[in-house]
Amino acid sequence: MTPITSAPSAIDARFAALRDSGKRALVAYITAGHPDPAGSVALMRGLQEAGVDILEVGVPFSDPLADGPVIQHSSQVAIAQGVNLVRTLELITEAALDIPVVLFSYLNPVMAGGDAILTRAREAGVSGILVTDMPVGSDPVREAWFGASGLDFVRLVAPTTPTERMAEIGRHGGGFVYLISRLGVTGERDSLAADLPETVARLRSATTLPICIGFGISTPEQARAAAALGDGVVVGSALVRAADESVDKAIALARSLRDAMDA
């Protein structure tokens, strides 16, 4: 595997700007096509307006084994409305966002998309890609394909990841590193994991990429606490659950997260 080196991307530029202003990144996850296709476009725009820095757009998949009940449900809702990877890219194009978009997917839908799909993703306005079930070293050929796509290849680090492997992940990733804050699947939790500061410190020693902390972060208080440890926070299930009720409710939550992080 060749380490990834490239010109500064939209994601790199966003982190540089955040550093200059002394702020932390608010990364929001939504599932494409949830609560419905038009609603998800409105949600993307509304989240940008609410001060989200980077938007992760989930590609609905039938078997999301890293996700908890909330995101599983949103995927099923989106699939039932015919939303797949190609439709996801159309929705992203339609939203015409200024903030960077990271495509968040399981490997299978991307494989099924064929050789040209990553080029199509770039043309649709996507800046980065995160593949939940393709850890570093699992598939050098396909990892090289992602690495050479011109998209930032955002990689995941878990609390179980040894420090040497963190360094390996950093060398083969781009944009930022997504630090999974605790063992388990996506979903809201009452508190941050006790070992999170230590994990962040290990990761900091292993890579210079910005660190965004996700999994289980749902409230403004948790977002502020996690933001203090890393360079950004990722909020997913809480927003998706809010969007189950209404798009406006999800946007309002994003605004309160932003306020808490900037306070």
């Binding site: 890293a66 079930d133 850890p135 990689r155 179980t160 999974i180």
Partner: peptide, 12 residues
């Protein structure tokens, strides 16, 4: 074959 899993499981 291979090992297409969440990062959390790799060490296990």
């Amino acid at each position: 074959g291979g090992r297409y899993v969440p990062e959390t499981l790799v060490p296990a």
